[in-house]
Design a protein around this nucleic acid. Sequence first.
DNA 1: TAATCTAACTGGTAATGACCACATCAATGT
DNA 2: ACATTGATGTGGTCATTACCAGTTAGATTA
Lengths: 243, 243
Amino acid sequence: MIDPNGYLPRYYQLANILREGIAEGKFAALQPIPSERELEKIYRVSRPTIRQAIELLIRQGYLYREHGRGTYVSPQKLQKGISELTSFTEDMKQRGLVPGQKILEIGYVRPSDKIRSRLELPETCDQVLRIERLRLGDGIPMGLQTSYYILPEDQTITREELEEYGSTYKMLQEKFHLIPTEADETLEVALATPPEADLLQIEPGSPLLLSERTTYSQYRRVIEFVKILYRGDRYRYFAKLTR
Amino acid sequence: MIDPNGYLPRYYQLANILREGIAEGKFAALQPIPSERELEKIYRVSRPTIRQAIELLIRQGYLYREHGRGTYVSPQKLQKGISELTSFTEDMKQRGLVPGQKILEIGYVRPSDKIRSRLELPETCDQVLRIERLRLGDGIPMGLQTSYYILPEDQTITREELEEYGSTYKMLQEKFHLIPTEADETLEVALATPPEADLLQIEPGSPLLLSERTTYSQYRRVIEFVKILYRGDRYRYFAKLTR
DNA sequence: TAATCTAACTGGTAATGACCACATCAATGT
DNA sequence: ACATTGATGTGGTCATTACCAGTTAGATTA
């Protein structure tokens, strides 16, 4: 069941086994899974390893513990949609829509004070890459996205690459070895200006959901600042909160 | 430094010491803290204990690790505002505003199908407590809140209690021993109807931020379903995302 | 000089053994 | 009949020991 010399660490293998068991209904919602001492005998791994696997599944929302009682399976509603950092592309896929994009503009600009502070720009740098895109879901306009990146001119992004990769996050990872790992996001409402309404194919003055996000790399440096104006009638934001 | 027989577990004491060190600037942002083996000698606790403390601080956003290099202090921007489950009252306090409320209506109603499903109501139950409140920040209308609770009639909430406690979450915890521990939230835009606009002191048709939240207890049972219509011009939603 | 290797760090995974704190329930006492 | 107690199960904490896996820098080599 668990390969001690496997490619994946043992606690990770065990977590996968348990997660599958939950998905298959082998362990039912609100019912306890075997105790840590029992799992020790079943899977032939030590208790710390088992606890590590369980802690992973708790963080992912699949299990929860009750001291003195046992470890239980979360109800389905709590098993999905943890507030995860996703790109627009991944977001659309999760919603069951085919992601698409239409690049409107791409080029270097002088950053405004707001952009400067959001990108935590050093004084020396006075050029940032700006990309404006119309984002589609199943071919229908979903939002208007404006992204800013700090990139030297010899390491830049071309329109062709952007179209080829589809997902910007995938490109950042493969081309620059920058992995988005954390982000701060704010959401508020806005009203569509005539040019925005035209691009989004809605009436001017229609309500929009405005998202502003600063994304950080694995080194805790700012990667990008992204502003997205979502169509209010087609987009809903999900969050999972814990305490 | 660390009391082995203290009221708090050792890993928790160590986490507090390190968190203070970070707050005081003793450990600077983006700089490494002492290695796990060094901390072992400094604080006279074993490595598992140290790792547990560090993992806690990582989850709270204060530290991050780099395999082979060390454990580093996160930049300030990432140290706060983790997507936490807070009541309206706590939310206002965090924003530096004085929370307030005006109770508009309180009583039992037959739940609609939508409310039924959101509360995961059993067939037998056909009465839920509905509370409608105008929520204030520094005395100014911030949002219109409608909450639904599953409570037997002998264990109910009165208008007086609601006004006395101020925070509903505090009351749930102290009176019913129900601790809100997890929640699913959705956000979308809406336009104010004339009666809503009147209560919120804005123009009819003004944009609003509509939040719908299902809150779960420590036993993973639904506690409440809450709908809040926030004034679009006075409220902004914050989220912290991870991967 | 420049590429390579190696030793010494770092965190990551794992086993073992021990004791504590909380929950439950059956046996015991009143 | 009821309250109490204690055994036994659960997860929570902690120490010790060992080895693996990346990173780095200085010593070695070509």
